Simulated scan of single mutants.
Amino acid sequence: MLLLDEPTAALGFEQTTEALDLVDRLRDRGLGVLLISHDPGDVKALADRAAVLRLGRNNGFFDVNTASQEQIVSSITGATENVPRRPAGREAGW
């Protein structure tokens, strides 16, 4: 299992391409890869499935082959809220 947290965040174009190619080769060898990224392009290029976390909560699971980039981005930005909100303040029992 390979866990990568924003592996391309501070890389230039060429280095990003090399890093993503390496991840792709490792995945093709059968290695499990968990990629944390804010870049929908990286996710679409490498992932089979995507889980979107928003404000610390699951806001959707997507099959990357069938979901559009717009659906995933909407879930990331909150345009599509897929989970019920927890009540704030007194309603939450605080």
Rank of each mutant, 00 (worst) to 15 (best):
E91I: 07
D63A: 10
A67I: 00
E6M: 08
A88D: 12
T77H: 08
G60M: 04
D5Q: 11
G89K: 01
T80W: 15
P87E: 04
V83E: 08
V64R: 01
S75D: 09
A79T: 07
T77L: 14
E14G: 11
E6F: 01
P40E: 05
R85Y: 15
R29Q: 13
V73M: 14
D63N: 13
S37K: 09
T8W: 06
V83S: 14
A51W: 13
A45Q: 12
R85V: 14
R29H: 14
E14T: 14
P40D: 05
N58I: 11
D42Q: 11
T66F: 00
A19F: 07
A51H: 11
V73T: 06
T17R: 12
M1G: 13
V64Q: 02
L11Q: 04
A67Q: 01
L35R: 00
V33Y: 04
I72P: 00
R49L: 07
V64L: 07
A67C: 05
L4K: 07
G12C: 05
V83F: 15
A9Y: 02
A10N: 10
L26W: 05
W94F: 12
I36A: 14
L4N: 08
A51V: 15
K44L: 12
E70P: 12
V73R: 03
I76V: 11
P87R: 06
S68V: 02
A50Q: 02
F62S: 01
A88G: 07
V52T: 03
G89N: 01
E14F: 03
A88L: 14
D21S: 12
I72N: 04
G12W: 03
F13E: 15
D28I: 02
Q69D: 09
S37T: 06
A50L: 02
A10F: 04
V43N: 03
L26F: 04
A45W: 09
G60F: 04
T8C: 07
L55A: 14
R27M: 11
H38W: 11
E6P: 01
L11E: 05
F61A: 04
P84Y: 13
L20S: 08
S37F: 08
S75N: 02
S37C: 05
L3K: 11
T16F: 03
Q69L: 10
R85S: 09
L2M: 08
E81V: 15
D24K: 12
Q69G: 06
N58G: 10
L53A: 10
